[in-house]
Amino acid sequence: MLHKKDFKYNGTPVEQAKKALIMVHGRGGFAEDILAVADHLKVEGFAIIAPQAYNNSWYPLSFMAPEQQNQPWLDSAIEMLQLLETELNQKGIESRDIYFFGFSQGACLTLEYVTRNAKRYGGVISIIGGLIGKNINTGNYLTDFQNTPIYLGTSDPDAHVPVDRVKQTAEILNTKNARVELQVHKDAGHVILPEELGRANNFIFGYSGMENEKP
């Protein structure tokens, strides 16, 4: 495995948690930075884990390059997420209680991993990402999500992830029995928006921020 096992942890210790959030950083990013985003998510009681990519990148070229041109790094990154999910399962956290958050290159990797391994996950949040490959190989996606909620947030335009690829990804996820919410923000830039985190709290974690308000 080219990517070394390098997991950063936050939140509740895995051995004590009933749910887990896996957070996948973007190109040039650090696990510690993506972990900080969880401060804005309704994940009290969750174990929060972020793998660190070798040399801060999961694969060398654009996610829309021919898949073979990003090998063997792409397969190694997918293997890394599989290892992490398996470890969580072995420590008593079922896949239906595992959630994913990915940004940019990390969002692309996250979507590719969960779609190749589709099952009932807790939920998936993808900020500016899409399924990987010059042409999406739907033959890689053999199982279904069993109504897993998946939030896709993106900007139109975005310098790295065309909005058409995000929309195509949403269509494929729907065919795999995911419950998809897609939000396209005009000229928002290549960033994580507060509006996206708020919507993810509501759609993925079932939190509207209104519980303490009086009727």
Rank of each mutant, 00 (worst) to 15 (best):
E87Y: 09
F63E: 06
T115A: 08
T86P: 02
Q105D: 11
F101I: 05
S57A: 14
P51A: 06
L88P: 13
R165L: 08
L83W: 11
Q82Y: 08
K42R: 11
I128D: 13
P60L: 04
V163W: 01
I93P: 09
A170W: 05
L152V: 06
R116W: 06
Y141S: 05
V166L: 04
G123I: 00
S62Q: 12
T148M: 05
Q105Y: 05
K91H: 15
G130E: 07
S62G: 14
P149V: 09
M80D: 15
Q82C: 02
T148D: 10
D158M: 03
D39I: 04
L74P: 01
A65M: 05
F30S: 09
G29I: 03
Y54I: 09
F101S: 01
V124D: 07
G45W: 00
Q68K: 14
K119F: 02
T143G: 02
A50H: 03
L131R: 02
D164R: 08
G139H: 11
Y151T: 02
E87K: 12
H40S: 15
S155W: 06
K91T: 06
E67L: 14
Q146Y: 08
E32H: 09
I48V: 15
Y99F: 15
E171Q: 15
Q68I: 10
I128E: 14
G28D: 07
G29Y: 03
G106D: 06
N174Q: 14
I128S: 15
I136S: 01
H160I: 08
P51T: 04
